[in-house]
């Protein structure tokens, strides 16, 4: 792999994988999506005046791949699904991580994705709107409801941190 592209992968692999994993909730599919995202980034690597595909562009590619995946999975996946296995971090996880997983698991995939983009990856409402095509008002509303739901679950779990 070419050096600049390898550095690009190293820079964004956690973000891409994080998004993919929170949608798919399994390592294999998340890796497939992340790999395909980087292959597409490689194909367009020299197309940008910035010297590399911007973070938001890469994120949009990942989101589109996640949506394709969700479309294929629809009959199986639901917000109520309890199987929320972490990316290889399951055995000795502290209670807080388990509680957070449960809280995130309680959200529908779209809301979870918004939480990941806004709270874990630090995108603004406007950036998320551009990436997902959702109106900003809808994003704010869904984030509000997601935070409310997560708070209720974490309070029930004791909210230790």
């Amino acid at each position: 792999m070419l050096k600049p592209f390898e550095q690009y992968v190293l820079k964004y692999q956690d973000m891409v994988y994080n998004i993919a994993w929170h949608v798919t909730r399994n390592q294999h599919d998340a890796e497939d999506i992340a790999q395909e995202s980087f292959v597409r980034a490689f194909e367009h690597f020299t197309d940008f005046s910035t010297g590399e595909p911007p973070k938001s562009w890469l994120c949009t590619v990942t989101l589109n791949l996640c949506r394709d995946w969700l479309r294929r999975q629809k009959p199986v996946l639901s917000g109520e699904e309890k199987d929320y296995r972490g990316g290889g971090q399951a055995a000795d996880q502290p209670e807080e991580r388990a509680a957070v997983k449960e809280a995130l698991n309680a959200l529908d995939p779209e809301s979870r994705l918004l939480v990941v983009l806004f709270h874990l990856e630090g995108f603004s409402h406007k950036e998320i709107s551009e990436m997902t095509g959702m109106p900003i008002s809808m994003i704010k509303n869904r984030l509000f409801r997601a935070r409310k739901k997560m708070k209720e679950i974490l309070m029930a779990e004791g909210l230790r941190r």
Binding site: Q13, D14, V16, Y17, N18, W21, H22, Q27, E31, A34, G86, G87, G88, Q89, P94, E96, R97, A99, V100, K101, A103, L104, V115, V116, H119, L120, M150, L154, L159, R161
Partner: peptide
Amino acid sequence: RMVEYWGSVKAP
């Protein structure tokens, strides 16, 4: 803050 702290997953 709890979600932000514990929610992220690192790429394998």
